[in-house]
Amino acid sequence: MSWDTVFMIMPYLTVVILLSIGLYAVLFKKNLIKIIMGIAIMQNGTNLFLVSLAYRDGYYAPIFTGAESTEMVMPTPHALTLTSIVIGLATTALLLSFTMMIKKHYNSINTEDMRRCKE
């Protein structure tokens, strides 16, 4: 395997690892903070996925610097990623503030204890 292939596969491999770690935390961790950390890791994995999709070897950033328009990468995935980062900040903040309130009301941040809504 040449180094080129390794560098091509590496980002996607990282995406898979990040998503798996995040999903594991969300599924099996009982601590709410850890669950939210898992979600944040999954967010980063998804963002990395979009950015690595957009990478084209030897192409230029889509800023008008004099390069031919055919040599520029499409900026759509980058726009997606930026939006996703902003949204991720909002959701993480909301989730953490919910956790604070859960701690206040239930005096615990364990998912085993927040089971008052059931059946």
């Binding site: 969300v26 599924l27 099996f28 961790k29 998912t111 089971r115 809504c117 059931k118 059946e119």
Partner: peptide
């Protein structure tokens, strides 16, 4: 059926997966 509705957040996620 009633036992399945545990009210546990992890279980909700596991059902989705």
């Amino acid at each position: 059926l009633i036992d399945g509705h545990t009210g546990r957040l992890n279980d909700y996620m596991i059902w989705v997966v």
